[in-house]
Nucleic acid binder design. Structure first.
Lengths: 219, 219
DNA sequence: CTAATAGTGTCTCTGAGACACTATCTA
DNA sequence: TAGATAGTGTCTCAGAGACACTATTAG
């Protein structure tokens, strides 16, 4: 067969909603090129694993891997994207609920930290392009499927659900119309539980009916 | 940097509508593995070109490359997908109009030939999986964008347009409702020309208003 | 005038979106 | 009882889908 000098990596765009903001996990680069700049976490694919497995391996570093959504996005292959040599990167998007984020990604000082997508630092390589692509895909997935469940705790209020949509799609919805829609789509069910420790009327907690990602026209 | 033994290829799923059927271009393999079976055309990516460029290069072999739509689909990376060694393949989908297909893909005896997607031979490697994915994506793109223009001649009748949708989405539409919808979406315009050489009332010829791929909820 | 396809309008029903007040809990 | 958020129904308008006949051409 032919000779090639191409390395293969996976990049992981890891989204969560923290403090009512859509945030993405970034690492600080410790070496050149782009030393001290932030980057999307990535790693080389091993010879005997497929890319999805490599992306999961990477994801384990930062999260408690229960109930993670992982989806392949796009393959970035500009010959100049890494100044050191030819690297083709398969980008993935992960959605995780705040409760599944490991402590080390919490600290402000950390080299691995969440940033709100609305106030990002300058990113290394072509990672801005990758992130923009991921945000676009996330919006589509939110509108047309039930993936919202992966970014919420397993039991949630309808207000929380609405907030996820409003935050990610960057628009407001009428409370009554939103609930009517969710109700008709038959994607969530009531539990017998209610919020506790809140200083107002406690809301009912709901669960998604299906863990499977399904096509549902939500918006 | 790290040592890897991974080769990178592009696979091209080339669609067209021929004889009112959705068809895909397949080559006959001349060597093992899968000798004499049909496969999606593919090639290695050169060290200094991005994957899109590689896919275009491949496409030139079979088509007259004017007015081709080319879109990256998905990257297939199972370590066992090629029995000879580790090959990661970036799959692309191309849409071409029948008028842009080179003669050599026309002959029945050819080693490069179109097959209706409804009566496919057995495919080599994981190419059935890739093709299924491509068909799925094609359906989505037809429903939500104006890509239909790439599979039609530049001037076409509304009946032809409706046929493209019916063929690919595998369902019938009411003539009046279909035309109402297309009219309202404002995506095509009349020309002053009509069909010729037909044995019935000749239909008006239309053109797409925009060559750019745009989001339009067609169906 | 026959065969073949092009081309056109109306009605019904469903779903989207605008809109404001009452209910229930804690402190 | 004040403060805070949960929770609920109606009306209007636009778009989707069902449905049948006339128009125009070639031969």
């Amino acid at each position: 067969m032919i000779k090639q000098k191409i390395l293969v990596t996976v990049d992981n765009v890891i989204f969560s909603i923290i403090k009512d903001k859509l945030q993405v996990l970034l690492i600080k680069r410790l070496i050149d090129p782009y030393k001290n700049q932030r980057a999307i976490p990535w790693w080389f694919v091993y010879d005997n694993e497929d890319c999805q497995t490599a992306a999961y391996r990477e994801l384990e570093e930062e999260t408690n891997v229960k109930n993670v959504y992982l989806e392949q996005l796009y393959t970035f292959s500009d010959p100049k994207r890494d100044p050191r040599g030819r690297v083709v990167s398969i980008a993935y998007m992960a959605l995780i609920s705040r409760e599944n984020i490991l402590i080390k990604a919490w600290s402000d000082a950390a080299e691995v930290k969440f940033f709100p997508v609305k106030s990002l630092p300058k990113l290394a390589f072509d990672h801005k392009k990758i992130l923009d692509y991921a945000i676009q895909r996330l919006k589509w997935k939110m509108e047309y499927t039930n993936v919202a469940q992966y970014i919420l705790p397993s039991k949630f209020t309808l207000s929380q659900l609405q907030n996820v949509y409003e935050t990610i799609l960057n628009q407001k919805f009428d409370v009554r119309n939103f609930r009517k829609k969710i109700d008709k789509l038959w994607i969530v069910k009531e539990t017998w539980e209610k919020e506790i420790w809140v200083q107002n009327r406690p809301a009912k907690l709901y669960q998604f009916r299906s863990k499977k990602v399904e096509i549902v026209e939500i918006i």
